[in-house]
Amino acid sequence: MGAYPIPSEFEARTNATYEALMWALSRPGLPRDLPSAGQAGIIETLIDRECAVYCEDADMAELAARSGAVLAAPEKADHLFLSQPPAQLTGLRQGSDMYPEEGATLVMPVSLGSGGTLRLSGPGVNGEVTLSLSGIPQGFWAERTRVMRYPMGFEVFLLDGATVIGIPRTTVVEVL
């Protein structure tokens, strides 16, 4: 006894990133801190050769490709790393009633703390929570509600620097 394995830097980083993502999705609307800013940390935490990934940023695409993931069109991708909110939501993967987990995961940048106010409710939210953010076009949340039919749907991670907010498909989003 006494000799314990020490996590490598990669392991420590991905472990902390996953913990932030897990709690972000478990508690929608509550910001969590990632160990590093940007999408790269999320890619190395979640993406490997079993994934089909759509990246708008060329550097992120290279990083994802290096993990062995297939680079795919937005409608085929299971993880989308976006530089701006998608123009349309109808084409995104939503899984099926039998395999709802095949729905996509979107990671996209926003600015938190200013702009329009959202009110969230649903699993993971104690009553309701409000948050202010900008960078998401008008109508995004209404369109999200329109195209998703639970249990099918997609998850959204909103990224502002090293802060992440998770919006799972179960969350009801009202624009105030």
């Binding site: 394995p5 020490i6 996590p7 490598s8 990669f10 392991e11 991905t14 996953y18 993502l21 897990m22 999705l25 478990s26 935490t45 979640l46 993406i47 490997d48 050769r49 079993e50 994934c51 709802p100 987990e101 729905g103 995961t105 699993p123 993971g124 249990p151 749907g153 998850e155 799972p168 498909r169 179960t170």
Partner: peptide, 29 residues
């Protein structure tokens, strides 16, 4: 490395992370 930290290798953890996130998103499924 003599062994992966936490026993499971990186790709196993990656897969469990992705699946757990979806499990949280679709409670009970």
């Amino acid at each position: 490395e003599p062994m992966s930290y936490g026993f499971l290798d990186a790709s196993a953890k990656c897969e469990i992370r992705r699946k757990t996130l979806k499990a949280i998103a679709v409670p009970g499924c």
